[in-house]
Design a protein around this nucleic acid. Structure first.
Ligand SMILES: [Mg+2]
Length: 476
DNA sequence: TAATTCCGA
DNA sequence: TTGCTTCGGAATTAG
């Protein structure tokens, strides 16, 4: 059952940066008579009536802003899809999760012991302030950077300190273990419902760029980069005997969007040839054939590629790569020499934000950036980066949402039993009977790759596994 | 509630 | 001159 009109979704599209969605506030904004607050029957009925009155106002505003088709053809159909994903949930092996919790607890106690022993007394290791007192007071280590309130003890700082004080390595271990246990074991366990599954909430009106977000629990930030954390994924399993998990994710979606928007010849060429984009960038920037690109050259090129998506400055790149500002400036210079279309794109987006007050995505989603005119340098720069990043991140969101609607429509009509469980920005996760995999692959990968036609091909990679940890590449 | 820290795309 | 990478959610401390 698909709702036809959701006032919150409409208000979100008209201004995705808004934080208030109360009918009282919307009514005021759209010039309706004052609406009662409170929970008396009269007040509740008054708000229901106001919502009805808001509908034509919101619809007109959407049409005038060119947002109607995005609303009616993507966001509204998505409401029901997300509702079903939430209701379906994802199965979790409670026993395995609890076992991981016990192991982590043991290791945490051991590491904590070791740290207290070396320091000579106990303290609250979870308190950055107390930790700072130990590191920079008692142990006399150098302060690397400061927060608003005192010396920073974040991972970047600790990694530097670890070079001269081995104990700091244990503190980093402690942080990792506590994070895993607290957020991903103790955090998830109580959210397993009676059906053995975890049912997240997908927010459709939170992210200013058009992305979804996931909360209670957030299933879009389950660890993957570090092996220890990645093991958490073992507890996420198919919910039916013999079934498997199937995942499909866009490859380099944001850089492909940059290629499309900028029309930059070198970037277009790289994706049309399906080259490794970071290796190609390294070859361009360092002036060597792709075969001669070293891992270090590729690493730097990758940092430049990601930095560009975020509108990073030479200052920021220098810091990210641990090189001098001059050298970073040279990198960026050489990058823009090789990708002049990209530079033009970035300048154009900032200019557009200044002139119109907002930037847009491929499907017309808009984000207002009033701070583009701020007098304060840092505030204005932040808005300029958002002007560069939002069309990129938001267009990727457009693509994924459009694909989800198409996929679910076809899946419903297909008679397949496979179920969509999660969306993780550029990835969709399903559970399915293994015999459906060939059909599911064609359906999902096909719809994702053809969601929109860009000036470069869209590439989707599929994986299958008996849990979310053991995902292996899949081709039918 | 603010601040710090850290997990993901 | 300035400042230093986007978008999120969650746990914890401290007031
Ligand atoms: Mg990917």
């Amino acid at each position: 059952p698909e709702p036809a009109f959701d006032g919150a979704i409409a208000a979100y599209l008209l201004n995705p940066g808004r934080t208030v969605y109360r009918i009282e506030d919307l009514a005021r904004e759209f010039g309706l008579p004052e609406v009662p607050e409170g929970e008396t029957p009269g007040a509740v009925a008054g708000r229901a009536g106001a919502l009805l009155a808001l509908r034509p106002a919101l619809e007109s505003a959407l049409r005038e802003a060119g947002l109607w088709s995005l609303f009616a053809e993507i966001e509204m159909p998505l409401v029901g899809i997300l509702a079903r994903m939430e209701a379906t949930g994802i199965a979790v092996q409670r026993e395995a999760l609890e076992e991981m919790g016990r192991e982590l607890e043991e290791r945490i106690l051991a590491v904590q012991q070791e740290i207290f022993q070396r320091v000579g007394y106990t303290f609250n290791l979870n308190s950055p302030k107390q930790l700072a007192d130990v590191l920079f007071g008692k142990m006399g280590l150098p302060v690397i950077k400061r927060t608003k309130t005192g010396p920073s003890t974040d991972a970047e700082v600790l990694e530097e300190l670890a070079l001269q004080e081995p104990l700091v390595e244990r503190i980093l271990d402690y942080r990792t273990l506590v994070k895993l246990k607290g957020t991903y074991v103790d955090g998830l366990a109580p959210l397993i419902e009676a059906d053995g599954r975890i049912h997240t909430t997908f927010n459709q009106t939170v992210a200013a760029t058009g992305r979804l977000s996931s909360a209670d629990p957030n299933l879009q930030n389950i660890p993957i980069r570090i092996e220890e954390g990645r093991r958490i994924r073992k507890v996420f399993i198919p919910g039916e005997p013999g079934w498997v998990l199937f995942a499909a994710d866009y490859s380099q979606i944001e850089l492909r969007v940059v290629a499309h928007f900028s029309g930059d010849e070198a970037l277009l060429d790289a994706f049309r040839q399906d080259q490794d984009i970071h290796t190609r960038t390294a070859a361009e920037v360092f002036g060597v054939p792709m075969e001669e690109v070293t891992p270090e050259m590729r690493r730097r090129a990758k940092a430049v590629n990601f930095g560009l998506i975020y509108g990073q400055s030479d200052y920021g790149l220098a810091r990210a790569l641990g090189i001098g500002r001059g050298e970073a400036k040279e990198f960026i210079q050489r990058y823009f020499d090789r990708y002049p279309g990209v530079k033009a794109y970035m300048e154009q987006k900032v200019q557009e934000a200044r002139e119109k007050g907002y930037v847009t995505t491929l499907l017309g989603r808009r984000r207002f950036l009033p701070e583009i005119h701020a007098r304060t340098f840092a505030v204005r720069q932040n808005a300029e980066r958002a002007a560069i990043n939002t069309p990129i991140q938001g267009t990727a969101a457009d693509l994924m949402k459009k694909a989800m609607v198409a996929i679910c429509r076809r899946l419903d009509a297909s008679g397949l039993r496979a179920r969509l469980l999660l969306q993780v920005h550029d990835e969709l996760v399903f559970e399915a009977p293994p015999e459906e995999l060939p059909a599911l692959y064609e359906l999902v990968v096909g719809e994702m790759e053809r969601a929109l036609t860009l000036r470069v091909p869209l590439k989707v990679e599929a994986k299958v596994g008996r849990n979310w940890y053991e995902m292996e590449p899949y081709t039918p």
